[in-house]
Nucleic acid binder design. Structure first.
Lengths: 354, 354
DNA sequence: GTGAAAGCGCTAACAC
DNA sequence: GTGTTAGCGCTTTCAC
């Protein structure tokens, strides 16, 4: 509980000026070896460690070497995988990561971003909430770099890394159509979330391309969490004229379908892969994306910006993979093991101007 | 890219002294309403936001209102659930969270802890690496509070929150013994990790209590990750005189057993519950612990310390639950759905002096 | 090689 | 009510 020793304390103990201590700690040349040794000794004796906060306050390069990471829910495996890869990129560069979850609540998002910015973060990797107001403009005017990941922030012209949700969904729905289904239900999370809007559009487009109308009774939005999704699916199956197939807009909804026993009665394809999807009965076909790649790419983009890249905002689209495991209906041959890709790759990885 | 405006800039714009701005920003009383209004106006016009780093440097209460969270791997669902609950507790108190993964590498742990400490964190929630040297003493001497979670740090007398791994494991092994198994294999992660040592001891004790010797051929340590565990289990099943039952020391090893198809040939109980464990064939019986409760409790303990609690180190033991889903052998009746607890609660939740 | 002085952005303590 | 001075722990600049 002793107060942390300062350079002043070390200087006094070593019988040198504070400036000499500063030079030794910074590893600068131009200090006599035996002076340096005396200083090192005092540092050890006192257990001194430089205060990087005070250091950054005065340094020429006014960077904190800290970034902020703001996700929907850190406990969600998708976002935690993303977070881990952001953290790895930061660690490689000697940056620290402040982390915060928004729960898709714009108020909490605002709190977190504001607190991060008051702590002088150099940049932000952000999964923006649904109901997003561009209060980030102020932060960015202050020099905080922002990169969005998983979904763009409405009305904000910043870098963004995401997948082609429409194309991925359309492939999944076509897979169901190809197997003779026409009553295909769509169940997803809040439409305020960009990925969910995009996936629903992909569903609509695939249905339209097949000359089919979307039955409103087979569409449910706003499903937060597994239990809610399970209830919605159970209800839909009990209704008159139920669907014969189901597309689920994210992993939680897919798990809800599994929970409700829908996979044993309906054909199903879900967005997002998940652990053990290949071990269920039937194994679940999914549109898979790589959260670690999303995080890594976003971090790389952000550090590029921090390093001075001031090109106009860019938008990176990563590929999705359709993984056919059999839950979409009669497969050609037995389902393949593990995460083997048996389908096509949609959304060619690439870069498009924002 | 404009430089962030400072209080000085605001003061000049509002035609007041810097001190008046400081008072307005801090929400102090004793500023004339119309003066305050002028200042607020200037703040808006310039997009000013207080620099909390500079603020903390000078404040009487020398706290940064930031804690560090150091886990093995943030991408692991167990640790990300733990992280989320730590973050929630911090958010409720207006604290920020710096996060870092160690990969169970003591060097990276040291880097991360050291960097956090240089950033003046008020405290640390720590999942210590296996090969731990107590270089934390120096940090703690500087006033950084430390709470360990999931496992204690060897040679470090600090608060710790964990479950009773021995008792939980012993219950699981007894469950297998009760079903007539005697050739029960143990497969776990590195023995350098405290939880793994404890679980192995629980296994040995349960075997000894049943009057059985442990066959070294049925014991494997050091399994990192699913593929390695799957290989080890496959090898063991092919060996002469294979086991008839298996206890797995963590979720990754259990998943390896599922991957290797062991659950269809052997009785199995694993430590740690996981998503979809109840949906597999057969459903997997597990010793379950609550990572969110671990994180929450650790954070509460830490904030207590930060708030001045200087009682001697305490050790909190949370309960595990044995969940019988059937994979341990012939169950009494059909397996129950979902996460229903059909077994006993081990390790009564409570507190013991360190 | 080493040190003294100034100042990063802010708050504490005290004036007026 | 408001302003002045000093100083948090450090780096920058410039002097010797």
């Amino acid at each position: 509980m002793a107060a942390r020793p300062t350079m002043k304390d070390v200087a006094r103990a070593a019988g040198v000026s504070l400036m000499t201590v500063s030079r030794v700690v910074a590893g600068e040349t131009g200090v006599a070896p035996q002076t340096a040794a005396r200083v090192e000794e005092a540092i050890r004796a006192l257990g001194y460690q430089r205060n990087d906060i005070a250091r950054n306050l005065r340094r020429k390069a006014q960077d904190s070497r800290t970034i902020g990471l703001v996700v929907d829910d850190l406990a969600n495996p998708f976002f935690s995988a993303l977070a881990r890869s952001v953290e790895d990129e930061a660690y490689r560069r000697g940056f620290l990561v402040l982390v915060g979850s928004t729960n898709d609540d714009p108020r909490r998002e605002r709190d977190v971003v504001s607190a991060f910015s008051a702590r002088q973060v150099d940049g932000l990797v952000l999964v923006p909430t649904g109901g997003n107001r561009p209060f980030f403009r102020a932060q960015m005017a202050r020099g905080v770099k922002v990169v969005c990941v998983d979904r763009p922030a409405t009305g904000l012209d910043v870098d963004c890394v995401a997948v082609d949700n429409r194309a991925g969904t359309a492939t999944a729905v076509r897979h169901l159509l190809d197997r003779g289904h026409s009553r295909i239900a769509y169940l997803g999370d809040r439409q305020e979330i960009w990925t969910q809007r995009e996936r629903f559009i992909g569903y609509e487009q695939a249905m339209a391309a097949a000359g089919l109308d979307v039955d409103p009774a087979l569409v449910r939005h706003g499903l937060r969490g597994v239990p809610e999704a399970a209830r919605a699916i159970a209800d839909m199956m009990k209704a008159p004229d139920p669907p014969t197939a189901l597309f689920s807009g994210n992993d939680l909804v897919t798990l809800g379908a599994v929970e409700a026993g829908a996979t044993r009665r309906l054909a199903l394809v879900g967005f997002d892969d998940f652990l053990l999807a290949d071990k269920l009965d039937p194994p679940i076909s999914v549109v898979s994306q790589d959260p670690a790649a999303l995080g890594r790419t976003a971090a790389q983009l952000l550090f590029g910006r921090i390093d001075g890249d001031d090109a106009s905002a860019r938008s990176v689209v990563l590929a999705t993979r359709f993984i056919d495991r059999g839950s979409g209906g009669a497969a050609v041959g037995p389902p393949l093991p593990g995460g083997l890709v048996t389908g096509v790759v949609d959304g060619v990885a690439g870069e498009v101007p924002a």
